[in-house]
């Protein structure tokens, strides 16, 4: 059996996905990037392979994506995470009746992608240099509030009052704003809700730049945060589609692409 892998070497996490010949997910794996992300990437790949009981040679085609894609020389090819994300979301979205708009919030950036009915990218937008409204923002906030990242989602719903306004768009300034709010005796829950709404509204603005169509597919690590999902849905006023493994959609897309590329190459070889 042939298998195909996609590896998404992101800024905060490395995601690996393996698919079989029919394009079904065989397995996924997520690990932190750390500083030695080349080494970590290889380890992540090998870990998944051993979990699945596969050999390196079973992977007939490997495509890298994410910031570190060019440095991961073991890959057969590389592709930008936007395209990979689009492919992954398109494939995964089929189960939900198809999606056209994708919102991805990653560790360092957030993206909005619009695809056509064949999965091709029509338009996309990315946040500019600043990390406001990205996963990093949540990270910083959680640290300031002495919470784990995973706890943020629950806290969101604990708030009794309206979410607070977090005005700062800059992560660094937001940090001091949060400290100020805490000092003024505001509860963590409403601050967290405020943070979620702040990120959500920024994200929606980004999404509006590319155009929002019907359903919105939401992926990336922060999609695991239920509070953020609720805030985003509230701001968007649209149905959200959240995949089973939101973090690995991009890696999955790369794996699907690997499978397609392999098939395309095979079809070129005369029988």
């Amino acid at each position: 059996m042939n298998y195909f892998a996609g590896i998404d070497v992101g800024s905060t996490a490395i995601k690996v996905a393996v698919v079989n010949e029919t394009g079904d997910i065989a397995g996924v794996h997520v690990t932190a990037s750390g500083s030695l992300f080349h080494k970590n990437s290889l380890e992540a790949l090998n870990m998944l392979l051993s979990n699945l009981g596969l050999k390196r040679t079973d992977i007939r085609y490997l495509i890298a994506t994410g910031y570190g894609r060019k440095l991961f020389k073991e890959a057969d090819d590389s592709i930008s995470e936007i395209t990979a994300n689009a492919i992954g979301a398109f494939e995964a979205g089929k189960a939900f009746g198809g999606v056209r708009t994708i919102i991805n919030i990653g560790g360092q950036d957030s993206k909005a992608i619009q695809i056509d009915d064949t999965g091709n990218v029509v338009n996309f937008a990315m946040n500019d240099k600043c990390a406001a409204g990205t996963g990093r923002f949540l990270d910083v906030a959680a640290r300031n509030l002495d919470l784990d990242l995973e706890e943020l989602g629950e806290y969101h719903f604990k708030s009794e009052v309206a979410p607070l306004n977090i005005n700062s768009t800059c992560t660094v300034f937001a940090e001091s704003e949060i400290i100020g709010l805490l000092a003024n005796g505001h509860g963590k829950a409403e601050i967290i809700a405020g943070i979620h709404y702040s990120i959500a509204s920024r994200t929606v603005r980004l999404a509006k730049r590319v155009g929002i169509e019907d359903r919105v597919y939401f992926d990336g690590g922060p999609a695991l945060n239920k509070g953020l999902v609720a805030a985003l849905q509230d701001e968007l006023g649209r149905e959200l589609v959240i995949p089973e493994h939101p973090q690995t959609t991009t890696a999955f897309g790369a794996a699907i692409l690997a499978r397609n590329e392999f098939e395309a190459e095979q079809s070129l070889v005369p029988a």
Binding site: Y67, I79, E81, I82, T83, N120, K129
Partner: peptide, 15 residues
Amino acid sequence: DKGQLSTRIEAFLES
């Protein structure tokens, strides 16, 4: 912003 730009440009070229 070169890194970020290259992602965007590549994605654009791919599309």
